[in-house]
Design a protein around this nucleic acid. Structure first.
Lengths: 105, 105
DNA sequence: ACGAATCGTAAGCAATGACTTACGGTAAGT
DNA sequence: ACTTACCGTAAGTCATTGCTTACGATTCGT
């Protein structure tokens, strides 16, 4: 639910592939696992991690379960990176100023 | 150098603490490790990972080495999340439309 | 009602990674 | 010159985690 879980969930390459497959829309587990070099249960475990991190939503549809990307989960990590970005730029500008003051050509 | 390295570098909690300590400006290794529950060599190893991922820059200053956040590295991951965010929103809207069409109250 | 399909979970195993201690190398202080 | 301070690297250990196989539960088709 927090951005920490989100980023650690996205750290795994296989899970990023899963996310990529869901970019165009919701898919069932079988469709996600199809063509992947790992077993279907392994995909299920990854889907579990992604869901727990708030990156995916599940909607049971009869026999199958459709997974879809949850925009809210992505946004949480996005906001963290924005604050990091702002601080990094400010620190960078400050350091450049310090250097210009201490070493005026 | 790619966003994959960036995200896997940020996945570790200790490395995020290091990043947080550098938000206000560059620091030497000793200053970063000070007060941390792990040894200084462990911090050095984390700094190495963060540098390789393009998240930190190093500037040797006499006896010490100053580490600072590299805005470019943060931006790379930010852009990835932006595209993911866009696709997620589009897929979400499309799914909502499908549902409205298939199930008109 | 019965068999097939879809999916989650449990247990066990191998690989990755984070930490410690020990060491070497360079710069600063006296 | 010699000692001290600062830092990176190497080797080894232990926990984490991603994978497979096996199994059980629910739903669809006939």
């Amino acid at each position: 639910m927090s951005y920490e879980d989100t980023i650690s969930a996205l750290a795994d390459p296989t899970r990023r592939v899963i996310i990529d497959r869901l970019r165009s829309g919701p898919l069932a587990v079988g469709a996600i696992a199809d063509g992947m070099p790992i077993s279907r249960p392994a995909v299920s475990q990854h889907l579990r991690v992604l869901s727990d991190a708030g990156l995916l939503t599940v909607t049971p549809s009869g026999n199958r379960r459709l997974y879809a990307i949850a925009p809210d989960g992505v946004d949480e990590l996005r906001r963290y990176l924005d604050t990091l970005w702002d601080d990094a730029l400010a620190a960078f500008a400050r350091a450049a100023e310090e250097k210009a003051k201490g070493n005026p050509t």
